[in-house]
Amino acid sequence: MPRPVIKEVEPLVESVCPPNRIGKGKIQFHETIKEIEQRLGDPAVRSQSFIVSNTPSHTMRMLWKMEKDEMLKRHILFQEEDKDSYVRSMLNSVVVQP
Rank of each mutant, 00 (worst) to 15 (best):
M1H: 04
M1Q: 06
R3K: 08
V5M: 00
I6W: 08
K7A: 11
E8F: 15
E10T: 05
P11T: 07
P11C: 01
L12E: 00
V13R: 05
V13K: 07
V13I: 11
V13C: 03
E14F: 04
S15H: 10
S15M: 09
S15N: 12
V16M: 12
C17V: 07
P18T: 11
P18R: 07
P18I: 10
P19F: 10
P19A: 10
R21K: 09
G23T: 02
G23E: 07
G23I: 10
K24S: 03
K24F: 03
K26L: 15
I27E: 02
I27Q: 03
Q28E: 09
Q28A: 06
H30S: 11
E31T: 09
E31P: 01
T32P: 01
I33D: 03
K34T: 02
K34M: 01
K34Y: 02
K34P: 01
E35H: 01
E35A: 02
I36K: 00
I36G: 01
I36F: 12
I36A: 05
E37R: 06
E37C: 04
Q38Y: 11
Q38W: 05
R39T: 13
R39S: 12
D42A: 06
P43M: 00
A44Q: 12
A44F: 10
R46I: 05
R46S: 08
R46E: 12
S47I: 14
S47M: 14
Q48V: 03
S49F: 09
F50S: 03
I51K: 00
I51N: 02
I51C: 12
V52M: 03
S53N: 09
N54L: 09
N54V: 04
N54G: 10
T55E: 02
P56N: 14
S57Y: 14
S57W: 15
H58V: 15
H58A: 13
T59S: 13
M60F: 11
M60I: 15
M60L: 15
R61C: 10
R61K: 15
M62A: 11
L63Y: 14
L63T: 13
W64S: 04
W64I: 08
M66Q: 04
M66T: 10
M66P: 01
E67N: 13
K68H: 06
K68D: 05
K68E: 09
D69T: 02
D69E: 12
E70D: 14
M71D: 05
L72G: 07
L72F: 14
L72Y: 14
L72P: 02
K73P: 06
R74L: 06
R74I: 08
R74H: 14
I76G: 08
L77V: 08
L77E: 08
F78M: 08
F78V: 03
Q79T: 01
Q79E: 12
Q79G: 07
E81K: 07
E81C: 09
K83Y: 14
D84C: 10
D84G: 15
D84N: 15
S85N: 14
S85Q: 13
S85P: 05
Y86A: 12
R88V: 14
R88D: 13
R88W: 12
M90A: 15
M90L: 15
L91K: 06
L91T: 10
N92Q: 12
N92F: 13
N92V: 07
S93P: 05
V95H: 00
V96T: 05
Q97A: 07
